[in-house]
Nucleic acid binder design. Structure first.
Lengths: 150, 150
DNA sequence: ACAAAGTCCATCGGATCGATAGGTTTTCAA
DNA sequence: TTGAAAACCTATCGATCCGATGGACTTTGT
């Protein structure tokens, strides 16, 4: 199960991608997406630090995407918010950690099985982008973000 | 990330499958697998309640598999110990729950992407069994639990 | 100057995780 | 028949995480 926070982050990015307007305030975004405002602010700040989102302070300030929606992968957001995608620490590429009590990594049957899970999960999550998740299909076609939905 | 408890459960089952002897005490199993004994007892009790493992009480008591190792899937153990495999509650087959704040399930872009993750994760986990994870390959061949390792 | 908005940091209640502890019941063997 | 070994049951614990809230501060446009 992914965290609520990661869901919020993804939905916020999708909403930002759908907005034509230059920027949206956290308050507006919170209301339209039904996300607790202060919590959303934290999330957006993280996304900003990652360089995914841009902010402008002061009155008329707000947030906007800093990169094209079809270059922001689910995998990147998930790793940022929830940590490694791999189901075992010893299978993470981005945050490898040896399993404390494991005798031999190469002989570990549990690891062998979960390696397959990790591979396929990564394939999906590093392949899917915010653009793939936009709610209005006509938007996708109009903007040529995806060729067509398979 | 799967829980430590699920890892213990899988390792315990693998160890039980590898044992030729009729039954093993929790204490022995705990020592050989380096799992906290009392914690392991809880796990084995759960596995027993599920009908995966058998127990005999009293002196000379212990645990043994109640079904062939190649019929015990990773998916089953994971669901028992860690809960649903699906990354979103609204994608779980075994424990479906609507996402509280979701407007429309069918229009949810996040859901669409994670549906693919769920499908592939299930394919792997419901396909892999304890027999697939046994450490000693010769055991597998000898007992014809798998034809050969791909 | 003031209001609106982002930023920073602390805290909080509740849940979960990993484990430990102690007592009870069953069983076997001496 | 009694004592040890083992499963079984329930409670509790400390640490961490999760989801969220609050307040103080800074920046910015009008």
């Amino acid at each position: 199960m992914i965290s609520q926070k990661a869901k919020y982050a993804l939905r916020a990015l999708i909403a930002l991608a759908e907005m034509k307007t230059a920027s949206v305030s956290a308050a507006e975004l919170a209301q339209s997406e039904r996300i607790p405002r202060k919590f959303l602010e934290q999330i957006l700040t993280e996304l900003k630090r990652e360089g995914i989102v841009q902010s402008r302070r002061g009155a008329t300030g707000g947030y906007s995407l800093l990169m094209p929606a079809d270059t922001i992968t689910f995998g990147r957001i998930l790793r940022l918010i929830d940590g490694p995608i791999a189901p075992l620490p010893c299978l993470s590429r981005t945050a490898y950690r040896r399993c404390e009590d494991c005798r031999s990594e190469s002989a570990c049957g549990v690891r062998r099985v979960f390696a397959d899970v990790a591979i396929s999960a990564r394939a999906v999550l590093d392949g899917a982008t915010i653009a793939d998740a936009l709610t209005d299909p006509s938007f996708l076609v109009q903007n040529r973000l995806i060729p067509e939905r398979a």
